[in-house]
């Protein structure tokens, strides 16, 4: 560490070094560490509903588990053995986020492979452009566009009924198809680019060598490309999973009337519920669960955290 600091100072000079280190420190502390610490702190506090505002900050204002307890078991007069609504929504969100991630992986791996190894020059550039340009449109607008596409009177239903596959329209929004499609689409770039980056650095000759030795396409991917792309795949999956589990706009706009996303509950606590401590507790649980799942995934695929950054 001392050595590193010395070479860093020597390379950049005092002024620039102080500025760079200061900027990084500020960024890490203000943007990452402090908010999380505040959240953590909040999540163990009483809300004004549980404690009289006049006693807030006084000796009675102690740390408490009530907020976590509420997530698990609900209010004291809840007849069920646990907080059915919130816990169900929580698990459904996690499972749905996993599904969105897998769907994105299945969709994006071939695209990334094609971009990195097959397409050349102009064609590749065009495809990248076609992938990126839709994201110039605001996220909310895109979500509404999906609503129009998938709505009961939307384009897709019109087409399907037009060519006679359907006789009655399907309400894709109510069935959550629109939500999953919207979430999946929202993060494809985050899946494609890490995978693309890794596969791009794979020596074409390795693919040809495998082919030359008699391999089928399927086996080339299983034995040569996918093992090589593992860091990129894990990195893409991590991002897509984290972001779709934590998405708010898409579920608000595209979610069916009966299906809540866990973030929507958190949002309600912060916003209409005016219960920041409880919202914080919910958010912390969601974050820790996601981190835990990602760590398990990495352990499973034997990817180190350093490799993901590549």
């Amino acid at each position: 560490m001392r050595n590193w600091l010395r070479t860093f100072l020597a390379r950049n000079g005092i002024g620039l070094s102080v500025y760079l280190l200061g900027a990084v420190a500020l960024w890490v502390i203000v943007m990452i560490i402090l908010p999380q610490l505040f959240m953590l702190d909040f999540s163990f506090r009483n809300n004004w509903q549980q404690i009289d505002p006049s006693r807030m900050g006084g000796p009675d204002d102690v740390y408490t588990m009530v907020n976590y307890h509420f997530l698990a078991f609900g209010s004291p007069n809840n007849p069920d053995p646990f907080n059915v609504v919130d816990v169900t929504v929580f698990f459904r969100t996690i499972v749905a986020a996993i599904c969105v991630t897998l769907f994105d992986l299945a969709l994006c791996y071939p695209i990334a492979y094609y971009l990195a190894q097959v397409a050349r020059g102009g064609k590749a550039r065009l495809l990248v452009l076609a992938l990126i340009i839709p994201f110039w449109v605001n996220e909310l607008l895109r979500a509404f566009a999906f609503r129009i596409l998938f709505g009961e009177e939307g384009t897709i239903n019109a087409i399907l009924m037009g060519i006679g596959i359907l006789s009655d329209p399907i309400d894709f929004v109510r069935e959550d198809v629109a939500l999953y499609a919207g979430l999946g689409y929202a993060y494809i770039l985050l899946m494609i680019f890490p995978i693309y980056n890794v596969i791009e650095s794979l020596d074409k000759n390795q693919i040809e060598a495998a082919r030359d030795l008699g391999s089928s396409w399927w086996r080339i991917h299983r034995r040569v490309v996918i093992p090589f792309a593992k860091p990129g795949i894990t990195s893409g999956c991590t991002m897509v999973f984290m972001l779709s589990a934590g998405a708010l706009a898409a579920p608000q706009i595209l979610g069916g009337p009966s299906s809540l996303w866990f973030t929507q509950i958190i949002y309600q606590w912060f916003n209409t519920g005016s219960n920041w401590p409880r919202g914080s507790a919910y958010a912390i649980v969601l974050m820790l669960t996601c981190v835990l799942l990602v760590l398990i995934l990495m352990k499973l695929f034997k990817v180190k955290i350093g490799e993901i950054g590549r």
Binding site: N205, Q206, A209, A210, R211, D212, L213, G214, S215, P227
Partner: peptide
């Protein structure tokens, strides 16, 4: 190429870096 009775040794060898020596050799 996978169905020809030829085997190619590449200019840069193109061994599979994530496999052991014996797995490389016996890939075919």
């Amino acid at each position: 190429p996978n169905r020809r009775p030829t085997a190619l040794i590449f200019q840069n060898l193109a061994l599979f870096p994530l496999m052991t020596v014996w797995q490389n050799i016996s890939f075919a």
